[in-house]
């Protein structure tokens, strides 16, 4: 496989994992703009746990099979603890609270000597593309399963109308905390895999722009079904590349300009999608239509 394409697919895998971690709370009506915080936690925890004690800045020297799950648990634990104050906030205040959390994490990590402070630190063991792909598929399958359970039904009910959900016996608070915590664990997993794939972690790379993009993938992909984050992440991972490719293909002055202004084009596409598909690209109604069409088409084709 070409290095360029593999590089892009690696980004797609990571973006997909991050997106599912932000999707779970979003599906229950909570906007988490703190992805970068959980990525940082996962990446640094995995790197530190994995690094041999003899090298600089030093760590515990655990193998990857332990460092990654431990990093996931760590992110989950932090997610659980902060979900208590954060879930008291609503709407844009929750967006700001989660954003502030990520800033706190980043601010702390940059000043902690034992994880390399501002210089960052290496994550020694390597996860190759195949490993990353397999884990991504597992994450997607897990989230798909989770959304199909009664817990998933409770999450979606809380998203739609929490007071009615309560009246039918849903524990709204527990549902929210669980969704947020599992989401934090998944984002942390993405961070750990990032570290072990690129073999270096640096807090500056996990900034608010990343959090914004991840939330965008989720919202524009659609929070109503478990397909939304996959479509959103794929769409936004490939669009900048597609514009670049298009520019090269068109060629000439216009092609060059297209490449130069691709961020503008990207922005315009985002705004257009928000206008055209305010509930996200993939909605329940859309899936229902597609499946009914297929069911109707099948007997017709058989005749």
């Amino acid at each position: 496989m070409g290095g360029e394409i593999e590089g892009l697919l690696v980004i797609l895998c990571l973006n997909t994992i991050y997106a599912y971690g932000i999707f779970l709370p979003a599906a229950s009506g909570q906007l988490n703009l703190g992805a970068a915080g959980f990525i940082t936690l996962g990446a640094y925890a995995a790197a530190w746990l994995n690094m041999s004690p003899d090298s600089e800045p030093g760590g515990l020297g655990l193998p990857m099979v332990l460092s990654i799950p431990s990093a996931v648990l760590f992110a989950a634990a932090v997610g659980f603890v902060i979900s208590v104050p954060i879930l008291r906030t609503r709407g844009v205040y929750m967006v700001l609270a989660t954003f502030a959390f990520a800033e706190v994490v980043s601010g702390l990590v940059i000043n902690l000597e034992f994880v390399g402070a501002a210089a960052g630190m290496p994550a020694e063991d390597h996860v190759d593309f195949t490993g990353l792909l397999i884990i991504t598929i597992c994450v997607v399958a897990f989230c798909y399963y989770l959304m199909s359970t009664r817990f998933g039904l409770a999450m979606r009910s809380v998203h739609d109308d929490e007071s009615v959900a309560t009246l039918f016996g849903v524990n709204v608070r527990a549902t929210r905390v669980a969704a947020f915590t599992i989401g934090a664990a998944i984002v942390g997993l993405g961070g750990a895999l990032y570290g072990h794939h690129f073999n270096y972690v640096e807090a500056q790379g996990f900034n608010v722009l990343l959090s914004i993009f991840i939330l965008l993938y989720v919202l524009l992909g659609g929070t109503q079904t478990a397909w939304g984050p996959l479509v959103g992440a794929a769409f936004f991972t490939f669009i900048p590349e597609t514009i670049r490719w298009l520019g090269r293909w068109v060629g000439g002055e216009f092609g060059k300009e297209l490449i130069e202004y691709r961020l503008v084009a990207f922005g315009i596409i985002i705004v257009m999608m928000m206008v055209l598909r305010p509930e996200g690209v993939v909605t329940r109604t859309l899936l229902e239509r597609v499946f009914t069409l297929r069911r109707r088409a099948a007997p017709a084709a058989a005749e």
């Binding site: 399963y145 959304m147 199909s148 359970t149 009664r150 817990f151 998933g152 039904l153 409770a154 979606r156 009910s157 998203h159 739609d160 109308d161 009615v164 959900a165 039918f168 016996g169 849903v170 109503q224 909605t283 329940r284 229902e288």
Partner: peptide, 30 residues
């Protein structure tokens, strides 16, 4: 619940009868 299907809305009505972790993690939709 506007984003749930008819059957899912009805299954929400069953929620109080489906207690315990095993019930919560049962894949109704799969």
């Amino acid at each position: 619940m506007p984003h749930l299907s008819t059957v899912e809305n009805v299954m929400l009505g069953q929620h109080a009868r489906a207690r315990g972790l095993a019930q919560q993690l049962f894949p109704l939709g799969l």
